[in-house]
């Protein structure tokens, strides 16, 4: 909390932002960010895959606020496409865009986000700082979502508690762990549903994941089907509903040694839940 955000060096233009519980984000720039009357704008760009052209952008007007700052509001609608959105300032029409650095990110409204039930589609946005120090917005957009609320790990199993958003459990609902690649090996640990049709839990016995071929390392992706086969696509389990954009290195679970394999649950770079099996 040491110093005010630097507003002078063009290469280090900083923007504050405040997120609210509905998904709205207000961006707040010092007015010195632009000179003169032309109407400045904020550009959000969906980061394309390496080597691909950039296709999706979202432009917001920057409006002068009472204390001489410039505000841009990203409303909850329309939802952002899932991915990473980089932020730029468009000082005036035709001028080159300038990438923005983060100032203060007030995300306190997101911290207990898992307590609010979300309708379908589930749209989530978390402003974050990129590895190279710029401001970006991480967005998820899913028809439905299964939020992991807790994982208890032992040396033989893990117990996962989760909650559905934008969907509810029906007859024949099932948890599925699917081995990435290969022939689509799956496991179906027994699902225990709560009375509200949203909360559920299940136990994954680690020996079940290494039984087939203990020497084969692999990653099992975890999802849930809300009813018997033929219904909607499986819903991926993950943890999206708080202020943490990159969870992998923050929520880290113990590993267990099962025979000649090492097993651990982890969150992927997209904050989805998977179980990794490696050799001892």
């Amino acid at each position: 909390m040491n110093t005010k955000p630097d507003t002078t060096r063009g290469t280090h233009l900083r923007v504050d932002c405040t997120a609210d519980a509905d998904g709205r984000i207000v961006f707040d720039l010092p007015s010195t960010a632009t000179d003169g009357p032309p109407s400045p704008q904020l550009l959000l760009r969906l980061r394309p895959k390496k080597g691909q052209p950039e296709k999706t952008v979202h432009v917001l007007d920057l409006e002068p606020a009472h204390d001489g700052r410039l505000l841009a509001v990203l409303e909850p609608q329309p939802a952002l496409t899932e991915g990473r959105w980089d932020l730029y300032l468009l000082p005036e029409p035709g001028a080159p865009r300038r990438r923005l650095r983060p100032g203060l990110r007030d995300l306190r409204a997101l911290v207990d986000g898992r307590l609010r039930d979300r309708p379908s589609p589930v749209a989530v946005r978390v402003p974050y700082v990129t590895k190279d120090g710029y401001l970006a917005v991480r967005a998820w957009l899913r028809t439905a979502h299964a939020e992991v609320e807790g994982i208890d790990v032992t040396d033989r199993s893990m117990t996962v508690r989760a909650r559905l958003h934008g969907a509810s459990l029906a007859e024949g609902a099932a948890v599925r762990l699917r081995l990435r690649g290969g022939d689509g090996t799956v496991r179906n640990p027994e699902l225990r549903g709560g009375s509200d049709g949203r909360a559920f839990s299940f136990v994954v016995d680690y020996p079940d994941l290494v039984a087939d071929d203990a020497t084969r390392p692999g990653v099992w992706d975890v999802s849930v089907r809300t009813r018997s086969d033929g219904g909607p696509a499986p819903i991926r389990l993950g943890r999206l509903l708080d202020d943490v954009a990159d969870r992998k290195e923050i929520f880290v679970y113990p590993t267990a040694v099962v025979g000649t394999a090492v097993v651990r649950p982890y969150y992927t770079v997209d904050n989805d839940l998977s179980v990794e099996v490696t050799r001892v």
Binding site: M1, N2, L104, R105, L107, R108, V111
Partner: peptide, 9 residues
């Protein structure tokens, strides 16, 4: 850094 936005959480 800065910590301010983290303290208020």
């Amino acid at each position: 850094a800065p910590m301010e936005a983290e303290w208020v959480k």
